[in-house]
Structure formats: structure tokens, C-alpha cells
Design a protein around this nucleic acid. Structure first.
Lengths: 247, 247
DNA sequence: GACTCCATAATTGCATGCAAAAAGTAGAAC
DNA sequence: GTTCTACTTTTTGCATGCAATTATGGAGTC
């Protein structure tokens, strides 16, 4: 009668964190709402201890506000917050790109970055984007960004970037929507890829400043996508975490 | 017989977090050492639940590494990590300064920043630095940095900066040591103050780029202090968190 | 009608004990 | 001498129940 409800994960805490994160992002709670442990624990079929740990984690991720001895409250985000979260990612990825340029020893280390770019290029060349190509795109894009932070060789920066990307609308693929495929957005993919090439080139030439600026500008592409989404209410509905945004 | 051992704080978790943080920073554990809950709980006079929560928090601060279902391990830092942590703070404060410049509406909002600078100036003018003047310096310096992040009007950036400064050697006053007072370091204080003025001036004139670069360079002063400390083993011993550094 | 104060209800904080998983250990087979 | 395996020990994960804290509602007072 316990937690055999399908979602297989090693511990109750991990399970609760996963489920609760999705619930919050999907808007099952009102922003500003205080979360009550006991009813929620019953709903999630876990006891209060793992639930508490899950709440704590989501608090550190930024989805919940931690009020000592007074529970957890669902965080509220303004559009400015979202701009700032994207800008923050840009600043951090910019720093990573600069460090990558400054710390590059062997140009062979660039391989993962160049590979991701190569595959992205191949993907975009093959005519229209289908749905599964879109999925591949997201995955390859993630690989590029992972390779970039690897090149920075900075544990500190990696931690900070991971933290920044924990917010659902801050990740590199936050505003890449299936719905965009058919519209006039292939241009944006090409621009993004060009920026990828630029970043790789800058790092290869040890042009730290250029790499920094390009990476920042690259992040601002997400901002443009956000603007598109914000103008179209229907589109905004499918954006992950949009329920947490108060316009 | 319970936790009436003096250290008054609202909850067991808060108490445990406080004490444990100091223990880790003071080097009561070896970097890389796995922390065992039960003995530690007995040592701290708390049960395992609040201890677990404290461990979790310190994990998110970056002092501990979280290994799911395999406990917590004391984080190990290289000198590069410390440089990176300082650089990260510089990048974030730079972004804050730039946003402050871009978002400044009313120049009267600069008051807290200018006030802190004014008092710092007065403090440095009055002859030699005594010990309590040094304490005031640290406090005023903190006020300046708090005012800066306030001016950025960015909750996101504030969160990120707070997270970055959680590491003991990343905070703005990390390498300001009592031991520095008498040595040839008044110059550094004056340089720091000059940078403060420059940042305030840049913000007042809405020169975002200048504010950004000055704030970054300002953070690098900490790096210089770090270099001084690294060259002198005796000095390094009194640096907060130095036991976590493996040379 | 607003305010204070108190009683009651709701909610979080925590200790204990047990179960499950991981780490460590010894012995046997190769 | 090495590797695999079974067993023991250690350690983490979690549910329950109780204590302490905080919110709530209502009576009394100004």
C-alpha cells in the first residue's frame, strides 16, 4: 500500500523532489501560496521527513522561498526576474567562455565543442525540422553548453551555472518550443549556430573577451524567444514554468 | 540534559548548521573526509534529523559534496578554485554594477552607496588603523557591497551573489586580516576606496560597462591579498577556511 | 467599531526505533 | 596471489508519535 505508484526512483526524497518540482513548475500551486506539509505528504504518498528534504532542495533551487520556522512559500517571478535569470546565465557562460580561452592548452581539447557544432550544422542543413530532429537539436545544444563549461575547467563556475539553470526558464533550451518549429524560427537556429562557431573560434584563438561577449549575446537569443512567447498568450501557456510568472 | 549548552538559537537545525559550518571552516574535518551522522550528531547534541538538514544546507553552500545515499563529504578546494570563486564574485558584482547603471532612475537612490563611501573615506583619513577601526572598515565595506546589489534591483542576481559569497574565501572581506593592518596595506585600502568611488561615479553617469569593469577589478584586489597570504604560511593560517585548501 | 488578550486549533520541529542499503571482511575457489 | 562470494557491520533512509511553536477565532474592553 506504500509508494508503488510507478515512478521508480531510488529514495523517497528523490521521488518527492522530482514530483514536487514538476507540480510547482506546472502551476499546481499559486505563487505566494504557503505549502502545508501534512496534506502534501499524504498527496505524494511520502512521510514528512523526505518531503521536508525535498522542500529544502527546491528552496535552494529557487522555486520555493524558505521562511525559517514558518514553512515554504512558492516563489513568484516577474518578467524582469526572467530577463535577469537569462542575463545571469549569459554572464556565467561568458565567464566560462573567457576562462576556456585563457586556459586552453591543447587545441585538441576543443573536440567536444566542435563535434557538437558539427552535428548541429548537419542537423540544420537537412531541410525542415521535424519533431524528433527538434529533440536532437535540444540534446546537441545541451552538449555544446556542457562542453563549454568543461573547457573552463572551473568547478566553481560549473556549480554557479548549474544553480542558475535550475530555474526552469533560465536553461539554454527554455524557450525552444515545438511550436516554434514551423514558424519563422529556423533563422534563429542558424544565428545560434553561428554564435556557437564564433565562440569556438574565439576560444581556439584565445580571444577571451570576444568569447565572453559572444556567449552573452548568445544567451540573449533566449530573451528574444521569450519576447515572442510573451506576445502570444497561447504560446506562453506551453512554456515550462510560465504559471509562476506574474505579468 | 538536552541542548542547553549556551548557544542560543531558535531551532536545532539552525544551531547545528551554525556550529557545523564553523567546524568545517576551522578544519575539524579533513577535506575529502566522509561525514558520519551518528557520531557527529552525538558530538553536536542534536538528533540525526536536524543534523541531516544542516548537512543538506551546507552541501548547497558548497562546503560539502552531496553523494546521494552515500552521505556527505567535505569539499576540497584548490588555489584555482579560490581564484575562481573570487573571479565569480567579480563577475556577479560587475553585472550588478552594470544593471545598477542601466536601471538607475533617481540619482538620490545612490545615497546609501555614497554614504558608505563617505564614511570609509573619513575612516581612512584619520591616521593609522586601529583594531576597532578595522572592524568598522569591514562593516562599512559590507554596506557598500550590499548597497550595490540593492541598486541592481535584481532578486536573481542577489540570490546568485549570496550563493557565491557563501564560500568563506569568496566574500568581499575574506582576505582582510587584522594582521594586514600594520603592514604596507593602507595603500590597498585607499585603492579599494578609489575603486568604490569609480563604481559609484560610473553608475551615476549610467556608464554600465565602466561600472562592470571596475567592479571586477575591485574583486581582484582580494586576489592580491590572497597572493600575499599564500606566500606567508603563518599568515595563511589565520585565513578563514584555509584548512580546506590543498596547495 | 477597533483593539487586546486568551484559548484552541493547526502546523512545524524533533527524537526514537526500525528497515533497507552500502561498506567492509573473511573465506573459498581458481 | 587474485578474484569472487557470502556474511557481518556500519550507515543511511524513513515512518511514527510527541512536544513546541505559530496561526486563528472569539470574548471582553476601551
Amino acid at each position: 500500500m506504500s509508494g508503488k505508484t510507478g515512478t521508480a526512483s531510488s529514495t523517497q526524497t528523490a521521488r518527492a523532489t522530482l514530483v514536487l518540482r514538476e507540480m510547482i513548475i506546472d502551476g499546481h500551486f499559486r505563487p505566494g501560496e504557503r505549502i502545508k506539509e501534512i496534506p502534501l505528504a499524504m498527496k505524494l504518498n511520502v512521510s514528512r521527513i523526505p518531503l521536508r528534504l525535498a522542500l529544502e532542495r527546491l528552496g535552494h533551487e529557487g522555486l520555493l522561498e524558505i521562511r525559517p520556522t514558518r514553512g515554504f512559500v512558492v516563489q513568484r517571478f516577474s518578467t524582469t526576474d526572467i530577463y535577469d535569470a537569462i542575463e545571469l546565465r549569459g554572464v556565467l557562460e561568458g565567464a566560462a567562455a573567457r576562462l576556456a580561452a585563457e586556459r586552453l592548452h591543447d587545441s585538441r581539447d576543443l573536440a567536444p565543442l566542435l563535434e557538437a557544432n558539427g552535428e548541429l550544422e548537419a542537423l540544420l542543413r537537412t531541410g525542415r525540422l521535424s519533431l524528433d530532429k527538434f529533440t536532437s537539436y535540444i540534446e546537441l545544444n545541451a552538449r555544446f553548453h556542457a562542453a563549454l563549461i568543461d573547457l573552463s575547467r572551473s568547478m566553481i563556475l560549473r556549480r554557479a551555472l548549474k544553480q542558475a539553470c535550475a530555474l526552469p526558464f533560465a536553461s539554454p533550451s527554455a524557450f525552444l518550443l515545438k511550436q516554434h518549429i514551423s514558424t519563422a524560427s529556423k533563422d534563429l537556429f542558424m544565428i545560434a549556430l553561428d554564435q556557437h562557431h564564433g565562440i569556438a573560434d574565439a576560444i581556439a584563438n584565445r580571444e577571451g573577451m570576444r568569447a565572453d561577449l559572444l556567449a552573452r549575446e548568445h544567451a540573449r537569443l533566449a530573451r528574444r524567444n521569450l519576447d515572442t512567447a510573451l506576445q502570444d498568450r497561447e504560446l506562453l501557456k506551453v512554456v515550462r514554468g510560465s504559471k509562476l510568472i506574474q505579468l
